[in-house]
Design a protein around this nucleic acid. Structure first.
Lengths: 340, 340
DNA sequence: ATGAAAGCGCTAACAG
DNA sequence: CTGTTAGCGCTTTCAT
């Protein structure tokens, strides 16, 4: 029986146990350089038998290389980010890079702390959500000297490279579609967005486009916290009672949109005739609702994939000169937005 | 303008720029030992001005201490795990420990890889979901010599400590409740569970308890992949057409339960009179459905909190002798399970 | 209150 | 193909 709090094994232990120099053991374990099949097997066998786990800390310090990629996102409970994450992981899995996730809760100070912590591990690159950040964060990223890929948003100036969609344009685009289908009395519901810049930009694009067509939002409401589905339901009820003339509701995300949809259906509204609805994100989760909510795909998987690819390219030295990679989201009309 | 690919700053740079020895700079930056207020400020100022980010790799190697906790979970898209994670983070934020997340996708081999990777960074502790794992994984954990907290499940023998609920008991408990309300023709829907041991244990407990009362499951169906809400809808439709006598449906998770609920409501079933429903997990997400699905809270937040606390205690040397911490989940009847 | 010396466990670079 | 020698950037330990 091995005792529990034993010193972890070192390369030296494997070296001694196998009668091979530390250096050769190291080479075997990393598949570097030529080693005779005989010694290779001997080393591998003893390493395994001993249960040796290499010390990456020492390895990283010596080699000045860390195969970690810092991935910094605002939240894990948003459904959107795990998806981006898994796309990133999928790409990185084909390299020797490993994603390490940090969460900021949409707070600039926390982003700063998380960034500082992660950079102090000297990762090979950073993938970070959004383009808005504190001067300190920006300075750290610039000073790090590693590739920095900012994702999700392209409305702004990237530090290094950006992959995402234009949320302003997305807002305009959905506004256009709504107006084109003849809706005129439009309500908006969304999160309070002092810190969610992408939601804010969508909203701005949305109202801008309406304004250009002489339309103003008839009613609006912002929430924070709570179950999004329940919030969507409550807010929709309240808004329809307050502003019964509304003939379209635009939601800043699909979850509250789904809540609204469920309430409107129960209340017997003709959808999309009497009233239309649209959300944002295209979350797969919601397939299975009685009706398919109109929404706009935010290209989450594409963004994750592309960002990781660009990072890998830059690390391989082959980076293009291009800095902004804008994807084009598409509207899916579902069953809640009229179409000719 | 600073050039982009500059060498990161070292302690030595700060030392030279401030005219203070490396050692003293190090002390200031870590708040260790006595340093005069004057030098402290000088050092802090130059470090900040230079934009120095300490190199944790070197620090960790020298101090033989890493303030990282490996948190290994099967999935991020399950809603359940991000919640556990945030509870863990909340506790660790009050210490100097940092969680680092690894995802296994429910695959033992991937768990092994992830574990190996993470252990090679010499974390201070491990929090890992489940009790079932490969011999190799178990060996690595044992050999690591660090505290290992296995979470979510208590039906089995922990390596070091376990915090969770008994899924077998949970299955029995819901079966009891269902039978007590007079339901007799019971159907089951869930994920294919060769690898989801907790779902399997719930199912086993469930059927055991039914058997003890002379009841056998009338119909069952297993799925994998796809949108859970949509799957729940489809499977429920198919099952009700196949076995119209069913008067209760037990779902292995709330999402498919919600899909089933929506379909049954549309189909005009009297719920919970003609047919009852129950899910598992108590996901807040689903508040806002037309009816509240009966479910069982899996104590996710409690588990995360308690696990992190125990880990911290063990690292402080104060660990209790106790090894298994079992929480007690509670049934919430919602609107889909009769109650007297 | 501050500094000097000696590693932490590994790998780069160079010999043989 | 294998081994030797120097560090990587920090912290520990021991002086002063």
């Amino acid at each position: 029986m091995t005792s529990e709090h034993n010193r972890p094994l070192t390369l030296r232990d494997v070296s001694e146990a196998s009668g091979v120099s530390e250096m050769t053991v190291s080479r075997v374990l990393r598949n570097r350089g030529d080693v005779s099949a005989a010694t290779r097997e001997k080393v591998l066998a003893t390493a395994k038998q001993l249960g040796y786990v290499p010390n990456k800390i020492a390895g990283a310090l010596a080699s000045q290389r860390v195969n970690l990629v810092a991935v910094i996102i605002p939240s894990l409970s948003n459904m959107v980010f795990p998806e981006v994450l898994s796309a990133i992981s999928a790409v990185l899995e084909e390299t020797d890079l490993q994603p390490v996730v940090g969460v900021t809760d949409y707070m600039p100070e926390k982003e700063e702390r998380v960034l500082f912590e992660m950079l102090s591990w000297r990762p090979s690159g950073v993938i970070i959500a959004g383009l808005e950040r504190s001067d300190a964060s920006r300075a750290m990223l610039k000073a790090s000297g590693i590739p920095v890929i900012e994702i999700m948003d392209t409305d702004g100036i990237p530090i290094d490279a950006a992959v995402g969609i234009s949320h302003r344009r997305a807002g305009r685009q959905i506004a256009k579609a709504i107006l084109k289908q003849g809706y005129e009395n439009i309500g908006f519901m969304g999160t309070k967005m002092p810190l969610d810049h992408r939601a804010r930009k969508r909203f701005e694009g949305f109202t801008e486009e309406l304004a250009r067509n002489g339309v103003e939002i008839m009613d609006q409401e912002f929430y924070s916290g709570g179950s999004a589905l329940a919030k969507g339901r409550e807010m929709t009820k309240a808004m329809m009672e307050r502003s019964p003339d509304l003939d379209f509701l635009y939601y800043s995300n699909d979850m509250i949109g789904a809540g609204g949809l469920l309430w409107l259906m129960e209340a017997g509204y003709d959808i999309p005739g009497r009233i239309g609805l649209a959300g944002f994100n295209g979350v797969e989760l919601l397939q299975g609702l009685p009706r398919q909510l109109a929404t706009m795909d935010a290209c989450r998987r594409d963004i994750g994939t592309r960002a990781a690819q660009i990072l890998v390219e830059r690390l391989d030295g082959g980076g293009t000169e291009e800095r902004v990679f804008e994807m084009t989201p598409t509207i899916s009309f579902g069953d809640t937005l009229k179409r000719y």
